[in-house]
Amino acid sequence: MRQRQKIDRDRRIVEAAARLFREFGFEGVKIETIAEQAGVSVGTIYNYYESKGDVLIAVVSLEVNEVISAGESVLTRPPARAADAVDALFDIYLRHSLHYLSKEMWRAAMSMSILHPESRLGRHYGQLDEKLCQQVCRLLAKLKRQGSIGGAIDVEVTGRILFNTMNMSFMNFVKEDAMDVETVIEAVRRQSETMMTLGG
């Protein structure tokens, strides 16, 4: 019972923070406001998180974990053509990316992880990226077992190149307020298609 209450409080904190950050911007929201919206005390938030930045990374974590869960459907039954399978996975990543977070929130999270890479926040952000990257590598490994990609391809190296290329396009998308999700999806699709063609 106590563990369920703890999980429920944490979820309320993260969901309240996501709503407030989207509406008022990361810098415009105080911990006190998050606590009020979540129906908890400020002390309770600090029992869970060291800083407002950690709360933001928790929102990122919620986003990424939902994306990874949705991405497992592609790994379960990937399209026969390798480029289509990669496209399907990246389509999930990109379309879900603004479900909880705005572009401004992503920029704040990225900048904090770059400025403080050795902080708890910075390390956690890096771990989330690694989980996504590993999912791409697992997809390629499955495609290789199915014979959809050549046996000579190093799935770990190729998966990391594909993920890093997609991730750079996502960063450009986040930086440009005017860029819509369809534009970045099409750019990533063209890049992935070229990569998979080069890979044989």
Rank of each mutant, 00 (worst) to 15 (best):
L128C: 05
R81I: 13
I57P: 02
G71K: 13
I68H: 01
K52A: 03
K175N: 04
P79R: 13
R95G: 07
D154Q: 07
T183K: 14
I185A: 12
M105S: 15
S97D: 11
V55T: 01
T194H: 08
Y125L: 04
V174D: 10
P79H: 15
V188D: 03
A88G: 01
M105C: 14
R22I: 00
I161G: 00
N47V: 08
A88V: 03
D91N: 14
V155L: 03
A58D: 03
M179P: 13
L94D: 14
E176P: 00
A18Y: 07
R145Y: 11
T194Y: 07
R138T: 08
G39E: 08
E63D: 06
R2F: 05
R120Y: 09
R190E: 01
W106M: 12
K144P: 00
S73E: 14
Y49R: 13
K6W: 08
L101E: 05
G39K: 11
R138S: 15
Q3H: 04
M166C: 13
L140Y: 06
M105I: 05
V40A: 06
C137R: 11
E193T: 15
S169C: 14
T194S: 14
I57K: 14
S51D: 09
K103T: 06
M112H: 10
T165G: 06
L115Q: 09
V40P: 10
D180A: 09
L162N: 02
K52G: 07
R138W: 12
D84T: 04
G199N: 11
L56H: 12
F21A: 06
I161N: 01
R19K: 07
I92S: 13
V188G: 10
Q37M: 11
V14D: 09
G39H: 01
L139D: 12
Q5C: 00
G28K: 08
L162T: 15
F21Q: 00
Q135C: 11
E15F: 00
Q37Y: 10
H124R: 08
D8H: 02
A178P: 08
S169W: 06
A88P: 09
Q135D: 13
Y100I: 04
G122Q: 00
V136N: 10
R12A: 01
F21C: 03
S51K: 14
R12G: 02
G25H: 02
D87R: 03
I57W: 15
T197C: 10
T165M: 05
A83L: 01
H124Y: 03
Y49S: 07
I68D: 04
G28Q: 11
A80V: 12
A108S: 11
G159C: 03
A18I: 09
H99D: 08
Q127C: 12
A17P: 11
